[in-house]
């Protein structure tokens, strides 16, 4: 039996794959935003060397960056599934829990991972800001909130941007891992398609191409923003 692109189209798989891609992007963007929030807070803690807290942050980043992402996803998923189902059933949200739960736990897991990498990127960027700039701002008597908003944050963003781009690229690829716990994203859709049509080659090739498109297009976007952020010559 021949099975080709035409059958993929007629079987309605293209729509399913596009929906899967949308879920992948949603998970990626949500996790990236939470990851950046985690990264900014933890990066500031590490940079300021806040007593006690900075050791906790060190523990967090070294564990997450040294242990496989898949293992972390298993921990969060299996570790919480019973607990959450129980609570949801008590409050009568069993249906809702099944639908939203996979998405929620996925975003939690991927955010924790991308947050650890963002922390290192942002800490590095903060360390690269010349000390004199901050000292000058203090000497001028600027309140500390304004120092952060006017002096620290803009420079941090500019220096950290290439690193954030790298974190985004890994984050979007890490979302493929959550297919193993059942969220219907791009990889899971390809897996189901491959199983039900007995044609894994075509489905995984399509999935690979869609991932490639996501990473390449976002790369172009990041490069554009980076060009805007980089200091203008002669200014």
């Amino acid at each position: 039996m021949e099975f080709g692109l035409l059958q993929v189209w007629e079987g309605g798989w293209i729509g399913a794959i596009l929906r899967g891609a949308a879920v992948t992007i949603a998970v990626g963007v949500a996790s990236m935003i939470f990851g950046l929030i985690i990264g900014t807070i933890c990066g500031l803690i590490k940079w300021r060397a806040v007593f006690g807290l900075s050791h906790l942050v060190d523990l967090y980043t070294s564990v997450i960056r040294g242990v496989p992402e898949l293992l972390i996803i298993y921990l969060l998923f299996f570790g919480s599934v019973e607990f959450v189902t129980k609570i949801a059933t008590v409050f009568g949200f069993a249906e809702l829990a099944n639908a939203g739960y996979a998405f929620f736990i996925t975003v939690a897991a991927i955010s924790a991972i991308s947050g650890a990498y963002s922390t290192e990127v942002i800490r590095g960027a903060l360390a690269a800001i010349p000390k004199g700039h901050i000292e000058a701002a203090v000497a001028l008597g600027l309140p500390s909130r304004r120092i952060f908003a006017r002096i620290i944050a803009p420079q941090m963003l500019r220096i950290a941007f290439p690193g954030i781009n790298n974190v985004w690229q890994t984050t979007i690829k890490d979302t493929a891992l959550v297919s193993v716990v059942g969220l219907q994203e791009l990889m899971r859709t390809a897996f189901i398609g491959a199983g039900s049509t007995h044609n894994p080659l075509i489905f995984y090739t399509i999935a690979a191409l869609v991932y490639l498109m996501i990473t390449l297009i976002s790369q172009v976007g990041f490069n554009k923003v980076e060009a805007v952020l980089s200091p203008r010559k002669g200014a």
């Binding site: 979302t175 990889m187 390809a190 491959a194 894994p200 999935a207 690979a208 991932y211 990473t215």
Partner: peptide
């Protein structure tokens, strides 16, 4: 592309 896709492919 994700490593998982490459492995499955």
């Amino acid at each position: 592309t994700p490593l998982l896709v490459q492995i499955f492919l």
